[in-house]
């Protein structure tokens, strides 16, 4: 297991380094931030001064060396716009996005897996067909439109839930979270549901396909031949087998959920880091973009790492074969 962990950790590090190079080159290519930042009426001398102050007059390789050097010390530079460390600004916004993504993920699993299993066990029933039709809608309707419809129905027409914002937050473990106040929770439900709908559809389809496959396996028939109740056959023998692909996919998707909650955050005025990215790109705030992308990479790599470990707990074949290897 330790050998496996170390090897897996090495792979993660390589991915982070490769991404650092790509991010730096990519951001360098999108344009000169001085043109956006500075007063358009400034003269050449002022432009040169700002360029020099930001270190943009140095050749590309030298800028890269400075970037990597700072990166190794955990410094991703100050935001051009806010004049404060970029990482600090992003981290302020991070809990809001993480909270949103986490609640959305829980919703996707808690609702998606049972529905998918149900649809898989009775693929030709009315219930099974309805679930599949619903999941197609979840897939194909634009995310922002679903969000607006949720607001229209639950906030405007029914008036049950607030339409936007974060509501009251409390500090838990040094992060400000909405999850633990009644007001905050009310604010959280709609955006989380909105972000969850697409993943839920994905989980439903995945769970259904796998259930149909697993239900035909001899070990399920053997479990029934042993005299187990239908309930135990489904909740233990079938469920444990279908959770392997579901966890894998969701792990990958959680990364994208955190990184690209932009649409939901915009629709529901949720003060997360997705909105911050869009603003930073408009302003060509290089350090913020770089910091955001590096953080995102770090999050995705970490999640994948955790998923692989989880995976090995779910599937003994992975765990044990890797120990030998």
């Amino acid at each position: 297991m330790i050998v496996y962990l170390v090897r897996r950790l090495g792979q993660s590090l390589i991915a982070v380094v490769a991404m650092a190079v790509l991010v730096f080159l990519g951001v360098y290519a999108i344009g000169n931030p001085v043109d956006v930042l500075i007063n358009p009426e400034a003269n050449q001398a002022e432009v040169a001064a700002v360029t020099q102050r930001l270190g943009l007059d140095k050749p590309l390789w030298e800028q890269f060396v400075i970037f990597i050097g700072n990166l190794l010390q955990g410094d991703l530079g100050n935001s051009f716009v806010y004049g404060r460390p970029a990482v600090e600004i992003i981290l302020e916004r991070l809990p809001a996005t993480m909270e949103l993504a986490f609640v959305a993920l829980v919703l996707a699993v808690v609702i998606g897996v049972p529905l998918g299993v149900l649809a898989g066990l009775k693929p030709d029933s009315i219930g099974g067909r309805s679930i599949m039709a619903g999941s197609i809608l979840g897939f194909s309707l634009p995310n922002f439109w679903q969000g607006m419809l949720l607001i229209l129905v639950f906030a405007v027409m029914l008036g049950w839930l607030p339409a936007g914002g974060r509501g009251q937050t409390v500090e838990v473990l040094g992060m400000r979270l909405s999850l633990f106040t009644w007001d905050g929770l009310q604010h959280l439900i709609l955006p989380a549901l909105n972000l969850a709908l697409f993943k839920m559809s994905l989980v439903i389809r995945l769970a259904r396909a796998n259930t149909r496959e697993v239900a035909l396996q001899d070990y399920v028939k053997f479990a029934r031949a042993k005299g187990l109740s239908a309930r135990r056959v489904v909740t233990v023998h079938v469920l444990k087998n279908i959770m392997i692909p579901v966890v894998t996919i969701l792990g990958l998707e959680l990364g994208s959920m955190v990184a690209f909650a932009v649409v939901t955050e915009t629709v529901f005025a949720w003060p997360g880091m997705g909105k911050l990215l869009i603003d930073s790109i408009n302003l060509l705030d290089r350090p913020l973009i770089v910091a955001y992308l590096m953080l995102t990479v770090l999050i995705i790599v970490t999640i994948n790492f955790v998923v692989d470990i989880l995976y090995s707990f779910l599937d003994p074949r992975v765990r044990l074969s890797e120990v030998k290897g």
Binding site: Q217, D218, Y219, K221, F222, A223, A225, K226, V236, H237, K240, N241, I244, L314, D315, P316, R317
Partner: peptide, 15 residues
């Protein structure tokens, strides 16, 4: 009770 043909498939691989 019943015993099946393929012993590779009759036992649940994850239990």
């Amino acid at each position: 009770a019943m015993i099946f043909q393929d012993p590779m498939m009759t036992l649940n691989p994850v239990l």
